[in-house]
Design a protein around this nucleic acid. Sequence first.
DNA 1: CTGTATCCAGTTGGATACTG
DNA 2: CAGTATCCAACTGGATACAG
Lengths: 126, 126
Amino acid sequence: MDTKSPTKYDLFKAGCPSRQVFDRIGERWTFLVLLALQDGKLRFNELRRRVEGISQKMLTQTLRGLEQDGLVTRSVFPTVPVTVEYSLTPLGTSLCGAVHVLRNWAYDHIEDMDAARAAYQADHPA
Amino acid sequence: MDTKSPTKYDLFKAGCPSRQVFDRIGERWTFLVLLALQDGKLRFNELRRRVEGISQKMLTQTLRGLEQDGLVTRSVFPTVPVTVEYSLTPLGTSLCGAVHVLRNWAYDHIEDMDAARAAYQADHPA
DNA sequence: CTGTATCCAGTTGGATACTG
DNA sequence: CAGTATCCAACTGGATACAG
C-alpha cells in the first residue's frame, strides 16, 4: 500500500494531493491534451488542431503546466523553422490510465445525466 | 460494451461526454463534496464543516449542480428550523468510484509531481 | 438551519499583434 | 513553426447582509 495515511494528508484539507491533482485536471484543457498525447508524440500545431476549440495561449499554458508537473516532455529540434515535440512521460501515461476511468464513466452515463437534467428542469419551473 | 462509438461522440469535440463530466468534476469543490457524501447522508452545515475552505455560496452552488445532474439527492424535512439532508444517488455513488481512482493516483504520485516541479524550477531560473 | 441576493476584486481566457 | 506580450470582456467566487 503506497497510499499515504489520512493523517499525513487529509482529503478535505486544503493542499492535499487530491486537490492538487484535481486542480490540474480540472483546468478544462489538461485532460484533453493528456489524452491527445496518449498515442504518441505530437507537435504544437498538431495538438492545436486535435483539440477542438483550444486557443494558442491556452495550449501553451496547459503544456507548461503539464511539463512542470513532470507529465509531459518537451523536445526542441533546431530545424528551421524550429520543431517542437510533446510526449507523455511515464508519469503522464500513468495518469492517463486514471483519467480514462473517468472518461469511460462519462461515456457510459452521460445519458443518465442528461435525463436527470431534463427531469430537474421539469420539476423546477422558471 | 456500453461505451458510445467515437463517431457519435468525438473525444476532442466540444460538448462530448468527457468534457461535460470533467467540467463538472473540475469545478474545484465538486469532487470533494462527492467524496464527503460517500459514507452516507450529511446535512448542509455538516458538509460545510467537512470540506475545508468552501464558502456557503459555493457549497450551495455545487450541491445544486450535483442535484441537477442526478448525482445527489436533496431531502427537506419540515422541522423548525428546517433540516436538509444530502446523499448520493446510485449514479453519484457510481461516479465516486471513478473519482476514487484519480484520488488514489494523486496520493500515490504526488511526491513524483512535487519532485518534478522542483526540478523544473532548478532548470528554469527566473 | 439553510439558504438567497448583491457587491465587487481577482482571475480566466480569447483576440490580436509581434518575434526568433 | 512555435511561441511571447498585451489588452480587455466575461466569469468566478468570497464577503456581507438579509430571509423563511
